[in-house]
Amino acid sequence: MQRCDRCSEDAVYLRRYSGQRMCSEHFLNYFEEKVVKTIKKEKMLQRGDKVGVGVSGGKDSLTTLHMLKNLQEDLDLEVHAIAVDEGVKGYRADTLGAAKNFCSREKIPLHVVSFKAGLGFTLDEVHKKRSPCAYCGVFRRKLLNETGIKLGLDKLATGHNLDDEVQAIMMNYISGDVERIARYGSGDGKGGFVKRIKPLAEMPEKEVALYALLWDLGASFAECPYAGGTLRSKVRDWINALEKDHPGIKFSILAGSRKMQPLLRNAASKELKKCEKCGAPSSGSVCKACLLLEEINLKGNETLI
């Protein structure tokens, strides 16, 4: 067996961008130290914060929750979990089960909100007009933010990992959305948004999966049935193909984008307004969630102009 570079134990991970082999213990230490470093560097948490974690029951959200739970005592945090049930048959019930088991085991209060109760429909019922992902992200963010405000949260943490960040950056480039590139990752808690934090933003998805597996967090590895064939899944495959031949490319994309953001913010970003319909922060006069809700409520062959 291949050995850890720091001890004689069997290696469980080869970090290709540094060439380092790690055993289980050294990998877990490295992972936790790096997440804590990211939290400190980005000033994500303050002592005494009331933090909500958006959980799906997958590896990313349970790893985020596990990390924050472990920091709870040191930072005097109050940690809550919020799960959004979009109503995707054959998928969400399983992942929510994993979230419920984890929260019950770790004694973390779990708040479940659903598309059906909060919006009046499930994702399965409305996805026929557009790609389901067009609705899902917008409405998930809306419900998470609204729940965060109700709970009086200081911070709302999500399980976005390095791969998610890099995919979003590349998708914004591909669609030429300069304003979104400028705004991306700046969930600064102003104008009606609970401040969003992403403690795993610098951890590659493969490392998050390994961490969840080694800790036996009971995470679901199920994939959303709507995920295949989307632009995001194509971008994901493309970036992973590049990463295989050029280890470290995901970090370069993230670092490059962070360097460009201050320049773009001055040149392209608009002040956030209040949505005319719901009062939520919005770049336009009506927020994306209200535009989509209006579209869903149209009858037959009507279209939104």
Binding site: D10, K206, L210, K244
Partner: peptide, 19 residues
């Protein structure tokens, strides 16, 4: 299969892809 997208257990133990 792209090795960037998977983890591997060899005889029930997680391992590196160089084995």
């Amino acid at each position: 299969i792209n090795r960037e997208t998977v983890l591997v257990r060899l005889n029930n133990k997680v391992c590196v892809e160089e084995e």
